[in-house]
Simulated scan of single mutants.
Amino acid sequence: MNSRTVIASIGGIFLYFIVQVLILKNLVLFGMAFCFLYVIYLLLLPIEIKTIPLMVIAFVLGFSIDIFYDSLGIHTASAVMLAFFRKPWITVITPTGGYDSNTPPTLLNMGMGWFLMYSVPLILLHHLTFFLIDNLGTSLYIPMVYKTLSSTVFTFIIGMIVQVLFYKKRRGI
């Protein structure tokens, strides 16, 4: 990563954090669907990033969000879980020719089919971890499933809208 990419990544993490904490914290559809847009930031980091640095980034981002949500580490645990499983999932869905180097895995760069197959299972894993930890000690499993599924769809749709509006198609350097 060159210095320009590092600065852009730091700016991106700060921007996603601010949007999550100031705007999306109170946005809940039908009392069930929550939007955790910071998950999209973790998914859009370059494919070449190693698991441990990604887990550190996820920890910092999740912990920062936990501070403002007063959620006692639930965002941190869920974000680190997503970061841990991202690289193996990318390995599973890698096409025969591989990926272009330094190409971000965005909707515009990879296409709708690939991005759907890449992001939805990881978003679902994050949300399932989040709501499972949130509901520990209760027997409210049916509402947990509804929250997980509706929040996954909501986060994915908002993530697609953000990418279409604010991201450019970019190829490797």
Rank of each mutant, 00 (worst) to 15 (best):
L44Q: 02
L29N: 12
I90P: 00
G111A: 02
V164I: 15
T76G: 05
A77C: 11
T148H: 04
V60Y: 02
I173G: 14
V145C: 13
P95F: 08
A8C: 09
I173Q: 13
M112N: 09
F63V: 02
P105T: 03
R170M: 08
L108N: 01
P95K: 12
S139E: 14
F115T: 10
T148K: 06
I161E: 10
M32Q: 13
V60T: 03
L42S: 05
I49Y: 03
P143Y: 08
S9E: 12
A8I: 13
C35A: 13
T152F: 05
K87D: 13
S150Q: 06
M32I: 14
I7G: 04
M117Q: 13
G137D: 12
T103M: 08
T152N: 07
S64W: 04
G62C: 07
V60M: 10
V145N: 12
F68N: 01
I49Q: 05
A58P: 02
V145E: 11
G73N: 03
Y118H: 12
V39D: 10
S3F: 15
L149F: 15
G113I: 14
S139Y: 15
L44R: 03
G172N: 14
L29W: 15
W114D: 06
M144L: 14
M55P: 01
F115L: 08
D70R: 09
F17N: 00
